[in-house]
Design a protein around this nucleic acid. Structure first.
Lengths: 374, 374
DNA sequence: AGCCTGTTCTACAACGTTGCAAACAGCTTT
DNA sequence: AAAGCTGTTTGCAACGTTGTAGAACAGGCT
């Protein structure tokens, strides 16, 4: 440990320090560290000892400068205070660790402006690439951008399929998931099934909004099972939040009082819908089945616990890191869009508690917080 | 963008590229980037343009190599799937961002072995320092270690006060928090107050275990208020989990049936205690008041919602980063141990719902998941 | 004209690492 | 004895950046 020039900071030991002690050249130490085979056993031993003695650890900064790679990837997500994102981040960290990579975490709570900064590369070159889950980026920003400033994999919803050069996109197949949502209701005996979600039809519409995709999946499932799919049971709402679900269900039942199943575009809408059903005195699931989408942490705790679509975060993380790794390795083909799996988590809102086997891969169906084991 | 030597990877633009275009020296570009004042306005403009043109962003790796600092700090926590740690991580990220620092996140699920790797510096030099929350490190490992391999700030519980050179420790003042827990029960009218917690008395005892510290705070509060503090109401349990709280409360009430308040060493114990009270038919808080410690995410959802000690994560993060910054700046004094604040979150388990004003800084007192706003 | 002052710009070196190619030692083969 | 192996070690250069020191220049003073 010596001093750094100019700053009086303590400096970690370098190859040079080891070399001096072991009485060999710097390059030989480097060779030992990198398991280069043509090193005599006796020298290797000598060097190893010296390494332990000074506590040498390779400096990523120098390696990156020399080789152009740091084995660090940046993960940019909205906020870890949403358990969806913290769980996702954990998956990325674990998965990255397996690949010998380290995760630099950025959280983007600064809105559109902050997201643009991420897209433009953080104003400094740090790791080898980025995994980026934008929330608010406008499509036109993508369109304007020829190529990303570094290898990038986008994740999440609301992204266009036309991506900048140098990037890929991992997403949930919204159409297929909504198809499965709907099929689940059909196969459990529902016949009058409505859909509720935010579907942008105005001029600012995102053609690939998750709302439209999910509606399409819903309609496809109806058709597949020979049920009427004229769109008459599609209830468009203004936003994705609980009050929208509440109001949407009110409107829906005013129009179609005989609905016996509701496919919700997300869990928050479903929670609003449940509130309306309670108000109307309809029993769930006996009178009406309700299914959500997202498997938010609240989903197991609603009454009744909510059946929902649960994205496979593990697969998502693994796929994203794979694609990014290829980009980092030098692949520079056109942007790829990859769908990852999801699971249907069956809870009580679609099946009576005693109505046959339930399987819930991620969370217990009706956890009792008071129960003892932990 | 040119190619990197040897690897065929795309290389980000450098000062040299900018300099060439602007027709100045590399150093001048560097001066512009770093706002060095003695640059003619016209040159500055020329350089700025060139920077935009090639999309130049400084490379942290080279800066770190040159200056010895990267403005990256590593945060090593057990797992982001515990909401305590994901919230904490978010605080660190935000706070670091304010200071112009970037957080490298490591999660240590590999047990003792993994924690030792962290302590030894990850086998590679990455950022400028580490914030480390160990769970399982043995005291003797600390004792054996003369000095940390890089600036380090420990956070969390169970750490000895004798730390390696080059490190500091930020913690919650367990004694004072337990004092406040107990005082809260006393000032709300309880007189027969018990304590329940895991207190290691065997040979392997950690002298600074949170159990003993919290018990000490409890006893001090009793004494302060002139209540008998002979330790007769201390119920030691085997572990910190729910069943221990359950069994502990059973044993406690067998010995002391007239207890009207229970200070719990953590929230999980408290949840076990609540179960026992339910079984015994005692009402909470009318017959017995219960107070926890940690403010786990479950705390607001127990029945009744649990009054508890909530660590101030924001202050914790800020303090830890401050201490680390000083270490990075070159401070190399003896290890410092700093206590951070906490708040007493009053919920229903100590005060009847209609019994006067309640304030709950962190979470709503009895959140209804079904309520609409979100 | 010569000198000084202050501003603007640049050359150089070094941070720690690794790919390349050359040097070297100890052999066996011609 | 020279040439040719094989295995082992090393010197050199470059990655991008910035602190130091000094060069080049302009303007004003004696």
């Amino acid at each position: 440990m010596s001093q750094h020039p100019s700053t009086g900071r303590r400096r970690p030991p370098s190859l040079r320090d080891v070399a001096e002690i072991a009485g060999v050249s710097i390059k030989t130490v480097s060779n030992v560290v990198n398991d280069y085979p043509y090193v005599r056993d006796t020298t290797r031993e000598k060097v190893r000892e010296a390494i332990l003695q000074v506590g040498y650890r390779p400096q990523v900064a120098a390696q990156q400068l020399r080789t152009g790679a740091s084995k660090m990837v940046t993960l940019a997500v909205p906020s870890l205070t949403f358990s969806y994102f913290s769980d996702l981040a954990q998956e990325f960290i674990d998965e990255a660790q397996l690949r010998g990579q380290t995760v630099v975490l950025h959280s983007i709570s600064g809105g559109r402006e902050a997201e643009r900064t991420v897209l433009e590369g953080f104003n400094r070159v740090l790791g080898d690439g980025v995994i980026f889950n934008p929330l608010q980026l406008e499509e036109k920003l993508f369109a304007r951008m020829e190529r990303t400033s570094q290898p990038t994999v986008f994740i999440g919803e609301h992204l266009p399929e036309a991506l900048p050069q140098g990037s890929d996109y991992v997403r949930i197949d919204n159409v297929s998931a909504a198809f499965d949502q709907t099929s689940h209701l059909i196969t459990t005996g529902r016949r009058r099934i409505a859909f509720i979600g935010r579907i942008d039809t105005e001029q600012g519409a995102q053609p690939h909004s998750s709302g439209s995709l999910r509606r399409d999946g819903y309609l496809a499932a109806l058709r597949e099972h020979g049920l009427p799919a004229d769109g008459g049971d599609v209830q468009a709402v203004a936003d994705w939040r609980r009050p929208d679900g509440f109001a949407g269900a009110e409107a829906l039942f005013a129009r179609r009082p005989d609905v016996d199943g509701i496919v919700c575009g997300n869990d928050d809408l479903a929670i609003g819908v449940l509130a309306t059903l309670r108000r109307l005195g309809r029993r769930v699931p006996e009178d009406v089945a309700v299914i959500g989408y997202d498997d938010t942490p609240d989903a197991p705790f609603t009454s009744p616990p909510l059946t929902t679509i649960s994205p496979d975060k593990h697969a998502l993380a693994a796929t994203a890191l794979d694609l990014l790794a290829e980009r980092i390795q030098g692949y520079d083909g056109p942007p790829r869009v990859v769908d990852t799996p999801y699971t249907l988590v069956i809870r009580d809102s679609t099946t009576a508690a005693d109505a046959g086997p339930q399987h819930s891969p991620t969370t217990p169906s009706a956890p009792d917080l008071e129960e003892l084991p932990r």
